[in-house]
């Protein structure tokens, strides 16, 4: 631990002493600097804590604040490698943040909150300050594509809605956004912001370091199960508060876990999906249940995709 702190201190001072023109090379070599990433993960997340907020006990708030500031300036630096470096910590920050808010401990996580708001506001607009939209066309069987021609698939698929989709194909896009920027997080917008952050995270999944996926799965499991381990036995203490969830937020989590499942973290990711499934059944969110059971069922019946660990 002390070792990690030392490393982080060096890392902080190294970046602050960089000249403008050195940033590019710094970024290029930084992306694969696993040591520092591990050190930061250890700083913000202590695996030995099973319940209760998980900031390492001996973490000095000052260091956390400096780390958050540096990560944010990475994000603003326009170097894609540095942005990705910051991005890998997003899920774990979300977990720490939501967990602390749920137990009513908002003081110690101010810097994380600021970082998350900053990232969100940075990502929902493009370079010109216009709200960003991610969209795509919804293909229809009624329109010929590079993979089929409508007639060969039989007329039974040329339904009214298929034809309508064809008509709307180029005008009515499936889209994410536009989202508005936020100033503060409150009960009303918190989960929307978190879902958006995970969406952004998911867009970079395949380029993130594998280590990040591991922490992603752990965070996902923790978020949905906090406060559900009912105490048995004589020690009748009050359980820890649960973290509120919304279906969009959970759906984004499944997306990431599904990816992790086929990229070296099968066991952890499966655990995360099962935890999410359990939570969705508890909250009665039909769309989330739909997706989790689809994932679980497709693993049972169709192991062709070579899910694997490590």
């Amino acid at each position: 631990m002390a070792d990690g702190k030392h490393l982080i201190k060096e890392w902080l001072s190294e970046y602050s002493s960089l000249q403008e023109h050195e940033i590019k090379s710094f970024a290029a070599e930084h992306e694969h600097n696993h040591e520092i990433a591990t050190a930061i993960f250890n700083l913000i997340y202590n695996e030995n804590h099973t319940e209760s907020p998980t900031l390492s006990q001996d973490v000095c708030e000052e260091m956390l604040e400096n780390v958050c500031m540096q990560l944010f300036s990475f994000y603003r630096s326009k170097e894609i490698e540095l942005q990705r470096f910051t991005l890998q910590f997003v899920p774990i920050f979300i977990y720490i943040y939501l967990s602390s808010v749920a137990v009513g401990n908002t003081k110690s996580i101010r810097s994380i909150e600021t970082l998350l708001i900053g990232l969100y506001n940075f990502e929902v607009v493009d370079e010109n300050g216009k709200p960003k939209v991610v969209s795509f066309r919804l293909p229809s069987l009624a329109q010929a594509s590079i993979y089929h021609e409508p007639l060969s698939l039989g007329s039974q698929f040329l339904t009214e809605s298929a034809l309508r989709r064809w008509e709307e194909c180029n005008t009515k896009l499936v889209s994410w956004g536009p989202l508005s920027q936020v100033e503060i997080l409150n009960a009303q917008n918190r989960l929307k912001v978190m879902a958006a952050l995970l969406f952004i995270y998911n867009r970079h999944l395949s380029l993130l370091p594998k280590l990040a996926l591991r922490y992603f799965c752990i965070s996902a499991s923790r978020i949905v199960t906090q406060g559900f381990n009912l105490k048995t036995g004589p020690a009748k203490t009050k359980s820890i508060q649960r973290i509120p969830v919304s279906s969009n937020f959970l759906l984004e989590m499944i997306e990431g876990a599904y990816f992790a499942m086929f990229n070296e973290f099968y066991t952890l990711a499966l655990q995360a999906v099962q935890d999410i499934d359990e939570r969705a059944q508890y909250e009665l969110l039909p769309d989330v249940m739909l997706v989790t059971s689809a994932v679980i069922n497709s693993l049972n019946s169709n192991p062709s995709g070579q899910p694997c660990d490590g």
């Binding site: 919804l138 499936v174 499944i254 997306e255 997706v291 689809a294 994932v295 069922n297 497709s298 169709n302």
Partner: peptide
């Protein structure tokens, strides 16, 4: 079933 499951995973997130 395999295809429908994949479709569920792919499009639900987009509200389709």
């Amino acid at each position: 079933v395999a295809l429908v499951d994949l479709l569920a995973v792919a499009v639900t997130r987009w509200g389709q």
